[in-house]
Design a binder for these strands. Structure first.
Length: 207
DNA sequence: TCTAAGATGGGT
DNA sequence: CCCATCTTAGAA
């Protein structure tokens, strides 16, 4: 990989006020990690926006607790939490201090360190990173990394200076947030149309 | 204290 | 459909 071809996203990218716009902008960007000296990277294929002020699906909605505190901090840091007692899910905190927004990364296409990802995941192919829990394991993310700066040396994002981003982005409802009632219908999931690394949706048995 | 539910993934 | 696995938030 030619590291010269990537330009790290500046802090200002994360401090913008509209988390839905940021979630769209993140599709096609590249997520890097350097964990235990191992460099891994992947192109972001699928994201979801969570708005702490008007969205019942957001963990920070109506609550400021030990777990959600990082989302209330200034944007540009990681929020990684344990889901179902098993999976570490990676989120990007956005917006200014006090405004608790975040973007969940749901799928990546690996572009560097596939061998490292395979050893962490014990599988190959799309299963390496076609879901939020899978990609976090492939990248070496753990819940203890919550608060890590995304402009630092352990986890960061960049744009490929040679990529014209000529893909088609689709929007649809978010996955697994039915508990948020009417907010579950918000079209705040963004993804590259027909991409092989998209997370799999559990098909409804009656359709 | 107690406990239901959860931004999933892998298997049957 | 079933289950692993354990934290978290809210109730009692």
């Amino acid at each position: 990989m030619n590291i010269e071809a990537y330009e790290k996203l500046p802090l200002s990218f994360y401090l913008r006020s509209n988390v839905v716009v940021i979630a769209q902008d993140l599709v096609g960007k590249v997520l890097f990690s350097q964990v235990n000296g191992k460099l891994t990277a992947g192109t972001i294929i699928e994201t979801e926006a969570y708005d702490g002020r008007r969205d019942k699906a957001c963990h920070a909605f109506g609550r400021r607790t030990e777990r959600t505190e990082v989302m209330y901090q200034k944007g540009g840091r990681a929020y990684i939490y344990l889901c179902y007692g098993i999976h570490h899910l990676f989120n990007i905190v956005t917006n200014e201090m006090g405004l608790a927004d975040a973007v969940l990364i749901r799928a990546l296409e690996p572009i560097h360190g596939e061998d490292v990802m395979e050893s962490r995941r014990d599988t190959t192919g799309v299963g390496l990173s076609n879901g939020p829990g899978s990609l976090s394991q492939a990248m070496g993310f753990r819940r203890e990394m919550t608060g890590a700066s995304l402009t630092g040396e352990e986890i960061w994002l960049a744009r490929d200076i040679n990529d014209d981003e000529s893909f088609t982005i689709e929007a649809d409802r978010r996955v697994g947030v039915d508990y948020a009632k009417e907010d579950a219908a918000l079209p705040w999931r963004f993804f590259i149309k027909d991409h092989p690394y998209l997370s799999k949706r559990k098909q409804k048995p009656w359709r």
